[in-house]
Design a protein around this nucleic acid. Sequence first.
DNA 1: TGACAATAGGTGTTATAACATCTATTGTCC
DNA 2: GGACAATAGATGTTATAACACCTATTGTCA
Lengths: 158, 158
Amino acid sequence: MTSDLRHDLQQQKPFISLVQEAQLNLARTESVLLAGFEQLLKPHGIGATQYNVLRILRGAGAEGLGRNEIRDRLLTRMPDVTRLLDRMARAGLVVRVRSTEDRRLVATRLTKRGRDLVDRLDEPVAAEHQRRLGHLTTAELRTLIKLLTLARQPRHSP
Amino acid sequence: MTSDLRHDLQQQKPFISLVQEAQLNLARTESVLLAGFEQLLKPHGIGATQYNVLRILRGAGAEGLGRNEIRDRLLTRMPDVTRLLDRMARAGLVVRVRSTEDRRLVATRLTKRGRDLVDRLDEPVAAEHQRRLGHLTTAELRTLIKLLTLARQPRHSP
DNA sequence: TGACAATAGGTGTTATAACATCTATTGTCC
DNA sequence: GGACAATAGATGTTATAACACCTATTGTCA
């Protein structure tokens, strides 16, 4: 079964360069995986970003985190985290508590409902990832991770 | 310089599994690369998806393509391609022509302006990709492409 | 040939993302 | 201690994405 990008996208001509081919493959693969992941989350009323926030807040513990901390830890860039948290608060997944020491600070914490949701999702999420990437060997996964990490390193100033 | 995800995202605990770590690295890397790419395109008034459409239409030749063809060839899933093309038409990048043989068909084609834009972008886009991924060796790029392609293969029905 | 499914595309509406700007609070330094 | 920069967060507004549903045209087949 052939399923390279040229075939997928009905492209006739060869790719211009190897870096471009890598970039296209990266975008395509992420899109495919993300689509499956969103599909899994949809019945629970959240998307990938909100799930990401739930994971972050669970990892942060009882004190919660400020808006900017959450923004900086998100996998994908997201301006307007305020209203993302608004929606999650409206859904009862998080609460906000303004600090009394520094009144600029507003900590966002998981509610029991938010915590329960993210806990309940652990298994299906792990299963989904297994289903999507489980056919790669351990060595392949390690190599993939290594190369993706390497790809994120910015080039030294020329 | 260390820049693995655990460090980037202030994560203390180890990842749950290798597949999960791969998925997170994939999402993160794509996000970083996409952000740089969008930054490059912004001065030209288009985003990554519109650029993708321009490339697709240039590849398709003078006859242009129907809406569904374009949708299917896009790197990332995009419902509502109609209004994406609306915007591009308003910007003067494409035109729509309804077929006389089958009046259901509406071909979308590049205008001279759209063609000029995508041509002008070839060089800076190639340079950006080179800047982002040029520090990987040819062998590393080939391996990355191979693994990403492999990652997209759906698992055989269990 | 007339009903009806299939195909191509569009529209209405709501939610979310993006961008710039604003307010409140605290730290700093003369 | 008062001016002012810095920080944390929120808001107003516009553009875009997402979802469901609708229209027009063509193919098919009893």
